[in-house]
Design a protein around this nucleic acid. Structure first.
Length: 243
DNA sequence: GCGACAG
DNA sequence: ATCTTGTCGC
């Protein structure tokens, strides 16, 4: 799919923060967004080495899943060397470059992008899912495995699949804590762009009929690890041959 | 000031 | 994120 590549990514923390503030108004959290998408994409990035520093080998993966069958209908990967360190709140700058590269290799255009991480549930209300949505112009939502900002009432969250509770930060509902499997730790869903929270949660739930994480996340995670291993293998092989 | 901190 | 042994429960 076509994506306009940013002329330059922020080089330091100050520039990264400034860009988030500039782009935040462009994220549209109104809905409803795709209620019955046929193609939903999952994205993830795997790291070699430390995982937090600049210079790590990284591999991004995008999988497009057919919601009717939950089968992967297209895959794309990209590898690179990280150019931004891991900083909570600026996580997007570490993953976006290589994720966008993988997305551009996609032949089909997904109706919804599910990211590994948060969207609105972010200190400055502009997490990875929001940023990716603004860049692509596609509906996006974030599905995170652990909370970042906000709190919720444990008593309001039921123990069965489908139950949920509002994730509130500074008096604002920034996401939803969603139980995707009975008695299993919940996931944290927040909107990114062009979709509302109820719709995003419905899609996540539909994509997670048997496991805690939606198939999009599971398949993207698997593919990113495979791509990383393949890339690391190529480097090792080249080093061996060339001395 | 101190601790916490998506992946 | 990644590195990893053992352990609890169905």
């Amino acid at each position: 799919m076509h994506i306009d590549v940013p002329s330059a990514w922020p080089a330091d923390e100050a520039a990264a923060l400034a860009l988030q503030d500039r782009l935040r108004p462009l994220a549209d959290h109104r809905g409803p967004g795709p209620a019955h998408p046929r193609l939903v994409a999952g994205l993830d990035v795997a790291y070699a080495g430390d995982g937090r520093a600049t210079g790590d080998l990284v591999a991004a993966a995008v999988v497009v899943i057919d919601t009717a069958t939950l089968e992967v209908v297209e895959r794309a990967t990209a590898t690179a060397t990280s150019t931004f360190p891991y900083i909570p709140g600026l996580f997007a700058y570490r993953e976006l470059p290589v994720l966008v590269e993988a997305l551009r290799a996609l032949r089909t255009t997904p109706e919804l992008l599910l990211c590994d991480g948060h969207g609105l549930a972010h200190p400055r209300r502009f997490g990875l899912a929001c940023h990716l949505g603004v860049l692509t112009g596609l509906p996006t939502a974030g599905v995170a495995k652990t909370p970042f900002v906000g709190t919720f009432d444990p008593a309001a969250l039921g123990g069965s699949r489908g139950s949920s509770a509002d994730l509130v930060d500074a008096g604002e509902t920034v996401g939803r804590v969603l139980r995707t499997q009975d008695g299993v730790k919940p996931v944290y869903v927040s909107t990114g762009h062009l979709v509302d929270l109820p719709t995003a949660c419905a899609q996540v739930l539909a994509l997670a009929p048997a496991y805690r994480l939606p198939e999009t996340t599971r398949q993207a995670d698997r593919l990113s690890r495979d791509a990383l291993a393949a890339a690391a293998g190529r480097v090792t092989a080249a080093d061996t041959v060339e001395g």
